[in-house]
């Protein structure tokens, strides 16, 4: 039994004729924080969407928390309950209040009593500092507030892993900080996190390792300090020079 909570071996994925993931090998240990960066179209979003099977891989092997992800996996919902995801477009449910957005899954999937679910939700909302908006609806909140709610919603399922797909890319600059603060807070509490982002400041502060992807392959992977100080590949150097 390995101590790695996510293991991807020789994973290949195609969209039609276009190969979007090429021979991905990745292992993530518990409590690790990994940042994935790279130019657009490099396959970073696809990579993490394969982890909770929002995308299906054609070749290779993905094991999450001891469970292998295959076509047959009937308990995919159980695995998804252990893996939380935050989207670029927030994707809050507009017809439910913030509180209801958060309690929906605990009530219907974990079969929690409503009171208990609401206490849990309020706790998470407090963590992301948005508890006073609990009775409002997504349409009434700003982008930054919505994204923090999305984080709280994912946390209400008490997942073991949190995936972030460019969480701040759709936000106005003045709201990016509040979301990043929430994520830093989460990291400090020991959550295993995989974050796809362009925010290198966040990477430097929180990440254990940084992965650079280009054209579907993992080009470089290193400890954060090492990655920024001594990038080994030319492509990595080019990318870093463009965004730093």
């Amino acid at each position: 039994m390995s101590d790695k909570i996510i293991e991807m071996k020789n994973v290949n994925k195609w969209f039609g004729d276009f190969q979007v993931l090429k021979d991905i090998n990745l292992a993530v240990g518990q409590k690790q924080k990994i940042v994935v960066c790279g130019p657009s179209g490099s396959g970073k979003s696809t990579l993490i969407r394969c982890i909770n099977r929002l995308e299906e891989h054609q070749e290779g092997n993905i094991v999450v928390d001891g469970n292998e992800l295959t076509e047959d996996t009937k308990d995919i919902e159980k695995i998804r309950a252990e893996v939380g995801m935050v989207f670029q477009q927030f994707n809050l449910f507009p017809h439910l209040s913030i509180l209801d957005n958060c309690t929906l899954a605990p009530i219907w999937v974990k079969k929690m009593p409503k009171k208990e679910a609401e206490e849990l939700a309020m706790q998470q909302l407090k963590q992301v500092q948005i508890v006073d908006q609990a009775s409002k609806f997504p349409g009434q909140l700003s982008g930054g507030q919505q994204q923090r709610c999305a984080i709280a919603r994912a946390l209400c399922m008490e997942p073991k892993i949190m995936l972030f797909d460019e969480p701040t890319s759709a936000l106005d600059p003045e709201m990016i900080k509040e979301v990043l603060d929430a994520m830093v807070n989460l990291a400090k509490q020991g959550m295993t996190m995989i974050v796809v982002t362009h925010e290198m400041g966040f990477a430097k502060e929180v990440a254990d390792e940084v992965i650079f992807m280009d054209e579907g392959m993992i080009v470089e992977r290193a400890q954060t300090k090492e990655f920024f100080a001594n990038p080994k590949s030319d492509r990595t150097k080019l990318f870093l020079s463009q965004i730093l």
Partner: peptide, 13 residues
């Protein structure tokens, strides 16, 4: 939007 279905799936429904 597709995102609604994905978000709902990602919390385990």
């Amino acid at each position: 939007s597709k995102g609604q279905k994905e978000a709902a799936a990602s919390i385990g429904l």
